[in-house]
Nucleic acid binder design. Structure first.
Lengths: 241, 241
DNA sequence: GTCTATATGTTGATAGAC
DNA sequence: GTCTATCAACATATAGAC
């Protein structure tokens, strides 16, 4: 059998009427396909076809596939980062009881991802897929650009969380935030069934689900940062062998 | 510039002295490369080269790349699943105070992944990388085979967890377990720094880290299953827009 | 069983006309 | 700026000798 025509999925999003000039359409098309298939499986041909232009036009504008990825992700992450900072400012300014601030900080971290609408509405939600793919796609390029794009956010949230929990060990805060990120990423990796506009028109179910994510993360963070290290209940101490 | 010779990483694991007959060496080589690069970026050429044989030998034994993946994953997951069931049996049989059983069940779910040693020791820990890749690699084939391989485990843990929490809503249990899986997957996705044999010869740091993972997950599960749904502290209710 | 040689299609990138 | 045509390297898979 010859190589499969479409390696991941049978080209699910084909005839998008993407708008803007060639450069903008290319960025949009790349994001959509990358979110769905990952870097490797997203060919320049597929991108340029979706954008209604040619491969050489893409190379004229971006030079290489890697630079196309970089510019696309920079553009996309700006909105997300901006709202995260906005919420974090609010969380730091407000008064809270008990563990309220910790929960507010995690909300500031998690909520924005679920609030931002995709510009292109035909797809389910490229923004979420994109974030998932970004943390999950193997190629080194992706890792590099992701760090580049989120470095500022990460360090500010770490700092804020450390300040919110009295006497917190920085190392544990880092771990806790990282695991929260894991919860968030996993929740958008296509394994949870998010109600869509038709079955949940007011978005109440989606809000509830996001609320549970935050609750899970907040409880986990507190357990890691404030809790004692407990001996395993099972296993003859084989962990870490 | 022509396409890069090595798309993900500069062939980090090259001269493995893999053992066994051709079939076994092929399975082992495939697992190592797949864990590192994902399905797409793992070419039959690279696999057969590492196994010290030819492409056609691989096709003789497995028929296709997909079947190679399937057999490799089946073989690898057997040990993991067996130990998970073993621990779960133990968690269900023992007596616990308070939320002990919930934590024990999560231990049964999480611990085995960190206990199993790779047969090939040169790599850091292919077993963990493998699990991460398995939940994260885009291609549909991977998703299909993963479900095939973990279906039994998932349903039994869901059931067990539901029984352990009085009056638990099955839907919430499912969500909680899924998020725990997210924590686990993320923790092995190469974003956490696991101390290795040299800096942590007795494995005490690694055990502590695994303990924290379990603590995070257990607290999160209880918060999701037992906690009330709380209104967001930030945002004008934009979530789920 | 395992090899070499080959078939056939894909990829990223470029040259040159317009 | 955008196109068509083409390149060299890669992919999976197969044919046939040994």
């Amino acid at each position: 059998m010859p190589p499969l025509a479409s390696p991941t999925s049978p080209t699910p999003a084909q005839a998008h009427p993407l708008q803007g000039d060639t450069k903008a359409r290319l960025l949009e098309a790349f994001v959509l396909l990358f979110a769905e298939r990952g870097f490797h499986a997203t060919s320049m041909r597929a991108v340029t076809q979706m954008a209604g232009t040619s491969v050489s036009a893409a190379h004229y504008h971006f030079g290489s596939k890697e630079d196309l990825l970089r510019q696309a992700l920079r553009r996309r992450s700006e909105l997300l980062n901006a709202r995260r900072f906005e919420y974090l400012d609010r969380a730091e300014a407000a008064e809270f009881e008990g563990n309220g601030r910790v929960r507010a900080i995690l909300e500031a971290f998690i909520l924005p991802l679920f609030e931002l609408r995709p510009e292109v509405s035909q797809q389910q939600n490229p923004q979420r897929n994109l974030a998932a793919r970004l943390y999950v796609d193997p190629p080194e390029v992706v890792k590099k650009i992701r760090q580049e794009v989120f470095a500022a956010v990460t360090s500010r949230f770490r700092e804020s969380l450390a300040n919110a929990i009295e006497g917190a060990d920085p190392e544990r805060v880092e771990l806790a935030l990282e695991l929260s990120l894991g919860v968030m990423v996993h929740s958008i990796s296509g394994r949870l069934s998010w109600p869509d506009q038709t079955t949940d028109p007011e978005g109440s179910k989606r809000k509830e689900l996001v609320g549970r994510l935050v609750a899970f993360a907040a409880a986990g963070v507190l357990a890691v940062v404030e809790g004692e290290v407990e001996a395993p209940l099972l296993s003859a101490g084989r962990a870490g062998e």
